[in-house]
Amino acid sequence: MSPILKITLSRLAMGILTLVIVSVLIFSAIELLPGDIATETLGQSATEETIAAFRERFNLNGPVHMRYFEWLASAVQGDFGVSLSNQRPISELIAQRAGNTFFLAAYAALIAVPIAIVLGMLAALYRNSAFDKAVSGATLAAISFPEFFVAYILVLLFSVTFGWFPSLANVDAGTGFVERLYRTFLPALTLTLIVVAHMMRMTRAAIINLLALPYVEMAHLKGMRRWRVIAIHALPNAIAPIINVVALNLAYLVVGVVLVEVVFVYPGLGQLLVDAVSNRDVPVVQAACLIFAATYILLNIAADILSIIANPRLLHPR
């Protein structure tokens, strides 16, 4: 077996193991609730039959490990049970909202990744110049500002003052694609500003690390233009750490979306999760947490595997 396949498979196995442990943790949430969930929800006056029916409906009968496997098996097939607060199937609640969340995250990623890489390359090219200092000052600010501060500043500027974009991102199933892009522009821009900083800093660092190496100096001595040296000689070798940080930030995007959705009242999974936590609707919280955690872990595995594949030393073993 080639070494690259071996490493990839072992990372994949580690990732799946992590996913399983995380799913156990999420499942045990309902076990850890204080008191008996059936009597808590139905009240003290509930009859034996209603309690039995409730336990049946929410899969509370039988030994813990059996219920875990049943829960996991149906969750994998997209069936997350029913909501405690309104008794509707969770998959119905989630389907549309998960789509909205991933749409917003993908939209932000499509804006953020190219900007971050180009700005990072420029900052590496003109390092220690006024441009570099301005960019690193701005990134420091973006890292330390809370998401909602960035969001409200954008709302104040683009929505209230200029009136270019709506301050609430209300979309539904009937909203057309272009209309959707327009209405979700401010939330996407907020997410972009938050993740660009980190990606850009890492791109800059990855490229600057390489600039001291002999082959880059050789390229300079041949009389190559600085831009060409960076784009053709440095960038391909910096691609592994860059891919890694991009994937990590995509993982962050999917989670960071929670706050931004609340600010813009966007009908996504994050908003649903926050509402479910305040209502203590455990099955919905479990479903949303499982989706968020699984996406996060899968993107992290992708980051690992892509940076292994991008390493040419592993592609051509001696």
Partner: peptide, 21 residues
């Protein structure tokens, strides 16, 4: 620590706060 760090902290905190209030 590896397992705790594999879950995004906001999500994990929300899960625990559902249980503890």
């Amino acid at each position: 620590v590896d397992v705790l760090m594999a879950i995004p902290s906001l999500i994990f905190a929300l899960l625990i706060l559902t249980i503890t209030g």
